[in-house]
Design a protein around this nucleic acid. Structure first.
Lengths: 337, 337
DNA sequence: CCAGCTTGGTAAAACGGTTTCTCAGATGCG
DNA sequence: CGCATCTGAGAAACCGTTTTACCAAGCTGG
């Protein structure tokens, strides 16, 4: 038991090699305190020679800062969480902060275990993230001794919450279609129980008028397929553009149109949502789609949780981060501008 | 600075409430030492009442065990890493071990920063993971003071490496096709520079004979599409089954066949590889495909890194974990039995 | 020539636990 | 009743670092 790790160098060793006390060594390495420049250099050189790496645990014990944060998510598949995670990590790595990733699959017990573990390990803050912005994680994060931030998941009013601005993204998409001269635009989207579905549909109607047609269904390719069947079988003027609730639906729509011999984007323009690369790029033609900028959302989450951890005042409430329309070939129109 | 976190309960507080010394409190809570049962109970009750959560940092400082491991990956998209991660986490959460996730995108400098951060934080071990089993991470993990394990990525000979048994998975898939009566089986796969492509192709030939036809290409749907074009345009007996190198290729194949009016699985059986749910399930018909059991691989990785961290002897070398054929509808044959 | 500053450095007390050692008192035994 | 043994609990050392307090010289100025 115990017994130092094989080649673990302590500050004690650095001090001995440099011929100073550990107090001096500490100050030299942290650029604090007063001492002769020569001494400081000598200590730094010794530390470099020995490959000294300060024990973050010992440091954390004193400073009450572990330089560690926890990322909690119930998005097992990771399509939304991964970009967020990448952003968080990117924003924090320069500050020396590491991220614990905990996946809890809608299991409250598991959630509690992970939160307890994180708190035990003295995380400086927790970011809660999910796959739906209108659902909470199955775990109670109120009254924790550390700051909590909600990113792409629902949080209490008094908390800081980061979400993508779906309405703005949707407006941009629909306005793009209108700008291309499309007039008979239909919105084919997911289940109307999702807040994001409501928000995107609302934005859609705000552009095309309240009579704008919206078809609710599921998030699947199959639904996109089926919707095209409905729309084209009912007679009357067929749509000349379809704004889809996500890329899977869009892919189903594009495939169904092709099967019917309808040319995309020649006769019908299609826009997706999510910019899920593997889906959007593999569709023929590649999808023009709305990117929620989740990585940037993650970066912002990282910056904010750090500010909170340092005790900086952060205005609570919901912050909507802008989406961006990514132009590919499913609408025509070429480069934007 | 410093100043204890708001409602942070120390063992000191527990001891005071229970009316004992902190030494006794510690022993009571850890079920060590000797003391009256009544005392032990009293301490435990006090700890529960106060919501005492031992400071893992302080504990780690003494025990030289942080109950933390690092997971390093260059799989930004996460398709392979996420299941591995989920498995690792699942295997370790019961032992109180948390996981640092570090994504390094083929950037050696970033890799070094993350490894240094992990070592500083005294991780008990590091699992290296990737998206290719024949490529190393762009970071040197030799001579580290902690054990390193390679999961789904290439590692040095003297290390413990976990990979999926692609050959076994491929054999099962091809034997399944043979069992269904298919005789003109073709293998459409990715770039021949991938070790996994070689291994799968080798296994394919070991079942159908060395004359078995293999078409190398890219990992894309487009390639699956194109391959069908090649195969059906060249005249002669068309294939009655296609074993694909991954699910994306398989999807391209199935789509191309449908466009040609060829019935899957009636006329041609198709098998994929990866069991990438969202792809396999959205294909029409849903893909029969080989699952690499990456979550189980992750669980095994978790168990092994823990054993290594505890100093248990673990035989070095490559361990191949079995794949599993997942039967859906793209081959016919119904339930396996 | 000495009080008062700087300068360059050290000793020691934290941080929050675990573990070893010690010890007082209760008990068993002859 | 005296001595060895056992029991339950506490004091103190320790893990590796930071930080505060302190001190011995060397210098300045009157």
């Amino acid at each position: 038991m115990a017994g130092r790790r094989a080649n673990q160098v302590r500050i004690y060793d650095v001090a001995k090699v440099a011929g100073v006390s550990i107090a001096t060594a500490s100050k030299a390495l942290n650029d604090t305190g007063r001492m002769a420049d020569a001494t400081r250099e000598r200590v730094k050189q010794a530390a470099a020679d020995l490959g000294f790496r300060p024990n973050a645990m010992a440091r954390a014990l004193i400073s009450q800062r572990s330089f560690t944060i926890g990322l909690l998510t119930n998005d097992t598949y990771g399509r939304f969480t991964l970009p967020v995670m990448a952003g968080v990590s990117e924003a924090l790595v320069d500050e020396g902060v590491s991220v614990f990733l905990c996946t809890i699959e809608d299991d409250p017990a598991l959630g509690k275990v992970h939160v307890d573990a994180m708190l035990s390990k003295q995380v400086d803050g927790i970011i809660a993230s999910g796959k739906r912005i209108d659902r909470r994680l199955p775990v109670d994060l109120s009254n924790l001794p550390v700051p909590v931030l909600y990113a792409f998941t629902d949080g209490p009013e008094e908390a800081v919450t980061l979400v993508s601005d779906d309405a703005q993204g949707s407006r941009e998409a629909v306005e793009w279609l209108v700008g291309l001269g499309r007039r008979r635009i239909v919105h084919v989207t997911g289940p109307d129980t999702f807040a994001s579905v409501q928000e995107r549909a609302g934005a859609f109607r705000s552009v095309v008028g309240t009579a704008g047609r919206v078809l609710f269904g599921s998030w699947s390719e199959a639904w996109g397929h089926e919707a095209v069947g409905q729309l084209w079988n009912e007679g009357g003027d067929a749509p000349d553009a379809i704004f889809c609730g996500n890329d899977q639906i869009a892919r189903g729509v594009v495939d169904a149109l092709r099967e019917r011999g309808i040319v995309v984007p020649g006769e019908v323009s299609v826009v997706g949502f999510d910019n899920w690369e593997l889906m959007a790029a593999a569709t023929r033609p590649p999808l023009t789609t709305v990117d929620m900028n989740l990585k940037e959302l993650g970066r912002e989450a990282g910056r904010l949780i750090l500010a909170l951890a340092e005790g900086a005042p952060v205005e609570p409430g919901i912050r909507k981060l802008p989406c961006q329309l990514v132009i590919r070939q499913s609408c025509g129109g070429g480069l934007r501008g």
